[in-house]
């Protein structure tokens, strides 16, 4: 059996979810479930005007590939696409896309969820906030909740 297709993209430009999904399902008859997750820039109740996403070029791609391969093998996914943007985003802009396919829904949900939990804590991206009042809000601190979200995959 051929390895499940894994697509990793780290880019400044916006992405088209439909096109990304098409690449996972086109010409296939074995896919029973497709789960997509899209992360967007939110305005924090009007306080935030923009987010600056910094990344470690080269390592960001390599780390997403390691996470993607782990998810494919753990959940027997049929395909997986991860797209993460960098640069300046405004509220409403898309930041990240994870699309996972599998024969059944549970694997597709878990596969996408696993990727996001690992991505949050180990893919080298950093967010800096710009406040709506024009001041530089500073770097977003890492959340303990993200570490816990990742840790739960160790127990199952």
């Amino acid at each position: 059996m051929a390895a499940a297709p894994l697509t990793i993209r780290v880019q400044r430009e916006d992405f088209d979810t439909q096109a990304a999904v098409h690449g996972l399902t086109e010409g296939r008859r074995d896919v029973g479930a497709l789960v997509t997750f899209t992360g967007l820039c939110r305005d924090e109740a009007g306080a935030l005007s923009a987010l600056e996403l910094e990344h470690y070029p080269g390592m960001a791609e390599a780390e997403l590939k390691r996470i993607g391969e782990a998810s494919i093998s753990r959940f027997s996914l049929l395909g997986l696409t991860i797209i993460h943007r960098y640069g300046r985003m405004q509220p409403g802009d898309q930041i990240v896309l994870v699309a996972a396919t599998a024969p059944h829904r549970q694997a597709a949900f878990d596969g996408a969820n696993f990727v996001m939990d690992y991505l949050k804590t180990s893919a080298p991206f950093w967010k800096k906030e710009h406040a709506a009042d024009g001041t530089e809000g500073g770097w977003v601190p890492a959340k303990d909740a993200d570490d816990s979200a990742r840790a739960r995959w160790k127990d199952v």
Binding site: Y56, M116, K120, A123, F125, W126, K127, A142
Partner: peptide
């Protein structure tokens, strides 16, 4: 060698 704060992507 890369040095950086805890990651906050996604």
């Amino acid at each position: 060698i890369g040095l950086f704060p805890p990651m906050t992507g996604g």
